[in-house]
């Protein structure tokens, strides 16, 4: 059974429809990518899952239809969304950002251990633990955004263009940590990227969106072998 499954999902901003019937499926303990050009509907797909937009179609999580639930309800079910633009809490310290991530948890001891785990994952954050998120560099903010999601101990993490605006070396460090999470934290993932190489460092299967529709879907070898995909997302 899939952990998360979208069936013919549409979503709109006001009257402008941005998704026209998207279907995809995330297996238990799986990781899938969503690729596509700017404006293809990648972010919108994640927002639809998180209940941030009005949708039609079915969104099944652990077999239950979660379409129509608000973002906080979806989050409490175990879906942690690292939004485009990072979405940290700028006036809160790094530690408080992490504690907010753990908001729905009651296991104090384990929370402290998880903070330590996150700081181990992103050593940069350890030195900045008392700084406001606003004072962090772009890369550190992205690390904090991922760490905040980890603190929720979710079943699924939705990661939206974590490489956006980062120097290539910083983007790689973020993705190395994501790969480690995938391995160590039993986290299933939906990874949105324009950079297919980074995405395929984590996922083995991806869906390519074009103007709000699924254009292609396949596993790493298939997609990387296609000229069209190489041209669009690998710069050659």
């Amino acid at each position: 059974m899939s952990l998360l499954e979208l069936e013919n999902v549409t979503a709109s901003y006001g009257h402008a429809q941005a998704l026209h019937g998207v279907s995809l499926s995330l297996p238990e303990n799986g990781a899938i990518g969503i690729l596509g050009a700017n404006g293809a509907g990648k972010t919108t797909t994640l927002r639809a899952i998180s209940g941030m937009l009005k949708t039609t179609g079915r969104i099944l999580f652990e077999g239950k239809d979660i379409a129509g639930l608000g973002p906080d309800r979806v989050a409490r079910l175990g879906i942690a969304h690292v939004p485009e633009g990072r979405g940290t809490l700028p006036q809160l310290s790094v530690r408080d950002n992490l504690l907010v991530g753990a908001y729905q948890r009651k296991d104090r001891k384990q929370i402290a251990a998880d903070i330590d785990y996150c700081l181990d994952l992103f050593p940069n954050l350890r030195e900045r633990i008392k700084s406001n998120a606003a004072a962090l560099s772009g890369g550190e903010q992205q690390m904090l955004a991922v760490a905040r999601a980890v603190m929720a101990r979710p079943r699924v993490m939705l990661l939206d263009e974590a490489s956006l605006g980062l120097a290539p070396s910083t983007a790689r460090r973020v993705y190395e940590a994501v790969v480690r999470l995938r391995r160590e934290a039993q986290l299933s993932m939906v990874v949105v990227e324009q950079n297919a190489v980074l995405a395929f460092s984590v996922v083995d299967h991806a869906t390519v969106l074009e103007t709000g529709k699924v254009a292609l879907a396949g596993d790493k070898a298939e997609l990387m072998g296609m000229d069209a995909v190489r041209r669009a997302y690998l710069g050659g």
């Binding site: 906080d72 979405g87 907010v100 908001y103």
Partner: peptide
């Protein structure tokens, strides 16, 4: 307090707070 932390988070960035499960 946890309630106070949640209130500060919501004041700071309500959309993001919702994504962490806070009942905004």
């Amino acid at each position: 307090t946890k309630l106070g932390l949640a209130m500060r988070a919501v004041a700071d960035n309500p959309r993001s707070s919702a994504l962490s499960g806070l009942p905004v």
